[in-house]
């Protein structure tokens, strides 16, 4: 058919231009991201070798069985996930009012300044920020020494010390802008007359917020949750510095299995399982909020 031939030509030309243009970048991501991730996936099904062979090409599910049954791994996995969920909840709940304030109560010409102020700490050295939290929260840290100097406490507070609480505070601080920005963007998109309509139809300000603003802001909240949840599961620095290596999370475990013990298949399986678990949690969260996300179209 004449049309068919033309069709092919058209598709080729339009699609081709885009593909050709994106190809250097795509190729880079394919070689340095997709291929390594595939390698990890492959390794996770292989058998550990000695220091010479390292990997033995023997397909097995042992690594997964170990990952899922060994108490230590399960404990770390559960701790990572709960810390990450806790951090996400704290971060998003603390961030929402800030995003709301900037979107609804800051004059338009000053919004960029606020966003800039919020993002700056995010771009400064993560390592140094994490270390500073250790300094702030430590036994002789800023808070304890400050409170002691002021005579408020006699003994240093221990509940903020080198424990899960300290990890949560540090991570919530690190990911704050990640949570604020998507929520802010969603709030900005809300047509302000919808809120007036809500009040015009007899709802109080609080109920208007619950029935109009919050549902419309949910896409932003979901994005914020995902963008905090997924990376925090794999955080390496914070447990290392704040927890002093005594409260390992899954990233530390992956590192120690892969490098310290040189068991690459087991480390790979841990990484794959960690990613699968967080993906499942993330998808479940998205599914729960699906009705809010559909509205967008």
């Amino acid at each position: 058919m004449e049309d068919q031939g033309w069709w092919g030509r058209f598709r080729r030309s339009e699609s081709f231009a885009g593909l050709a243009l994106v190809s250097p970048t795509a190729l880079y991501a394919l070689l340095l991201l997709a291929a390594p991730l595939a390698t990890i996936l492959l390794y996770s099904f292989l058998t550990d070798g000695d220091t010479q062979t390292r990997i033995v090409w023997d397909f097995t599910l042992d690594n997964y069985i170990a990952t899922l049954t060994e108490p230590l791994y399960r404990a770390v996995m559960i701790r990572s996930l709960s810390v990450s969920i806790l951090v996400t909840a704290v971060t998003v709940i603390l961030a929402f009012p800030v995003a709301y304030y900037v979107s609804f109560h800051v004059a338009p010409q000053r919004k960029s300044l606020w966003l800039f102020l919020i993002t700056i700490p995010f771009w400064t050295s993560y390592l140094i920020r994490v270390f500073l939290w250790k300094v702030i929260l430590g036994y002789n840290g800023v808070i304890n020494s400050g409170l002691t100097t002021l005579g408020i406490i006699d003994e240093p507070l221990t509940f903020i010390l080198y424990n899960v609480n300290a990890i949560v505070i540090t991570l919530a601080h690190a990911y704050a802008p990640f949570a604020i920005l998507p929520i802010f963007v969603a709030l900005e998109k809300i047509d302000r007359s919808l809120l007036e309509a809500g009040q015009d139809l007899g709802e109080s300000k609080a109920m208007t917020f619950l029935r109009v603003t919050l549902p419309l802001a949910m896409p932003g909240v979901v994005a914020a949750v995902l963008i905090v949840l997924i990376p925090t599961v794999g955080d390496y620095v914070t447990p290392q510095i704040i927890g002093g290596g005594k409260i390992p999370m899954v990233a530390n475990l992956i590192q120690s299995r892969m490098l310290d013990l040189d068991n690459r298949p087991l480390g790979s399986a841990l990484a794959v399982v960690a990613m699968l678990v967080v993906t499942v949690v993330a998808l479940a969260f998205v599914a729960l909020n699906a009705r809010f996300l559909k509205v967008k179209k």
């Binding site: 885009g18 593909l19 795509a26 991501a29 991730l37 990890i40 990376p231 794999g234 990484a271």
Partner: peptide, 30 residues
């Protein structure tokens, strides 16, 4: 441009935004 596979391709390129760095580092290292 609109091109075939745009979603997956851009998704892969943008993936490091959410992927834990330990995963990126370890897989590259391997």
């Amino acid at each position: 441009y609109d091109f075939a596979g745009k979603g997956p391709i851009m998704g892969l390129i943008m993936l490091p935004l959410v992927l834990p760095e330990i995963i990126v580092a370890m897989s590259l290292l391997m």
